[in-house]
Design a binder for these strands. Structure first.
Length: 404
RNA sequence: GGGUCGGUGGCAGAGUGGUCAAUUGCACCUGACUGUAAAUCAGGCGGCUUCGGCCUACGGCGGUUCAAAUCCGUCCCGGCCCA
């Protein structure tokens, strides 16, 4: 069994960096960690999508920090809770996920987060599925569990308050989500749960449940959300999500598309750059002589490095600078087959750089299509053999090479 | 069960017989500019098209009308109030 590190400085760092709240208190948790006790902690991820995203990585990263201290980590796949759908994410469509899909997704999840958390080696993280215990809950159990909470308590949830105000429906099963998540804590008998600050309510339900069923104090640690200074969340609606299964070049580029306000939080939450370097960046960002772009390049590099390794990160950076800063044509351009006397519009659609004929036409009309550097303004253009090997550029980031 | 209000494009949300493929905001796309795939500004944003138009769409179905997202009937779903 691995040894638990109880160095105060290291513990302070883990308890401070990117942390928003600790329940019941930071001091209590610190006391336990200093004591040298090996605690069991977890964070749950609902397998609703093929890929986790950088927002999920924040909590995984924190798990990884605890792992380095020698604690027992559970990476929980919420295959059961995923079926209910977390009301936190109101846009979540409750798509039924099959067991196979879940297994497939979760296998990828492990790979996706392996830059942050180790599943092998000395103190490997354990992977569990909450359907293991939640599937077995019967109606009677459910009633017993739910009798620990009042409707009023559930309604306190900001999300529900909002819907009440907007006179939008709240379905009964949505009340059950926090219970299901809370029950995970009980079933795994954990000491600590980690999650984003938006998960606070759910996690605190687990704390209550733990207290009433096992008479045990579960700690809850919430992470800051990745937001810019206006409080705007990095999320799907803002369209700047970075999926962890993205290739290195796209990952790099997507980070570069973040607004400047996300740079410092990005370093703090998504990397493990030393505190001193962080402070330095924070300082330099205030100085208008420095170009935020340079810090963003570094952030994109660091994030890509964690997920894809150093070489890939360097390659992605070069690619980005060449293609976007210097507007060079990249080296690896996918070849897409063309037919003799094929209309350019049809070709763009078949090459997947336009979503429909109309879209292709619009892009041409708006001056977004170039062939070998020459802007095309005739959307009726027909391709012939003389275009063999030429490069079509669509917008800023799509390139295809014509191949007959 | 009764009353009442409502269901519109990826989302939010206008429109209440023709001028509606549908105002606006967000998201998205393209361009300009730049410090970047940031910010800002401009344009675009259902599909097909022989570029004249055509087709499909405002919860479902049916109807009235020359003409319906808009009116009527019916069904499904939701909010609020009453029981």
């Amino acid at each position: 069994m691995s040894k638990v590190i109880n160095d105060e400085k290291l513990i302070d760092e883990v308890l401070d960096r990117g942390v928003e709240n600790i329940f019941p208190s930071r001091e209590e948790l610190k006391k336990v960690l200093i004591s040298g006790k090996r605690i069991r902690l977890y964070c749950g991820y609902d397998p609703t999508a093929k890929s986790l995203h950088i927002g999920n990585a924040i909590s995984v990263n924190k798990l990884g920090q605890f792992q380095k201290l020698g604690h027992e980590i559970i990476f929980l796949i919420g295959d059961f809770t995923g079926m209910i759908g977390d009301p936190t994410d109101k846009s979540a469509t409750r798509t039924k996920i099959t067991r196979e899909e879940t297994l497939e997704n979760s296998k990828n999840y492990q790979k996706q987060v392996s830059g942050y958390l180790k599943f092998d080696g000395e103190n490997p993280a354990k992977v569990l599925y909450n359907s293991e215990w939640s599937d077995k809950i019967n109606f009677k159990d459910l009633i017993e569990i739910s009798s620990n909470f009042t409707v009023q308590q559930m309604l306190q949830r900001d999300m529900f308050q909002q819907r009440l105000k907007e006179e939008k429906p709240i379905y009964l099963h949505e009340f059950l989500y926090p219970l299901a998540q809370g029950y995970d804590s009980v079933a795994m008998d954990v000491d600590l749960e980690i999650g984003g600050n938006d998960q606070m309510f759910n996690m605190l339900c687990g704390r209550d449940l733990m207290k009433s069923i096992k008479n045990k104090d579960k700690f809850v640690l919430t992470m800051k959300l990745l937001t810019d200074d206006t409080g705007k969340k990095m999320g799907k609606t803002e369209g700047n999500v970075v999926n962890l299964d993205e290739n290195s070049e796209n990952m790099f580029g997507q980070v570069m598309a973040w607004s400047d306000g996300l740079i410092v939080p990005g370093f703090e939450l998504c990397t493990n750059l030393p505190e001193e370097e962080l402070a330095e960046i924070r300082e330099k960002m205030k100085d208008s002589d420095n170009n935020p772009r340079d810090f963003k390049l570094k952030l994109a590099y660091e994030i890509t490095k964690i997920n894809h390794g150093e070489d890939a990160a360097r390659g992605a950076r070069d690619y980005f600078i060449k293609t976007f800063s210097q507007k060079e044509i990249p080296e690896d351009i996918p070849e897409v087959k063309a037919e003799e006397s094929m209309k350019l519009i049809d070709y763009l659609v078949s090459a997947n750089v336009a979503s429909s004929n109309s879209d292709a036409r619009r892009k041409i009309e708006q001056g977004g299509v170039e062939i070998d550097g020459n802007k095309i303004d005739d959307w009726k253009l027909v391709l012939d053999k003389s275009y063999e090997g030429k490069v079509i550029k669509v917008g800023k980031k799509d390139f295809v090479r014509i191949k007959f």
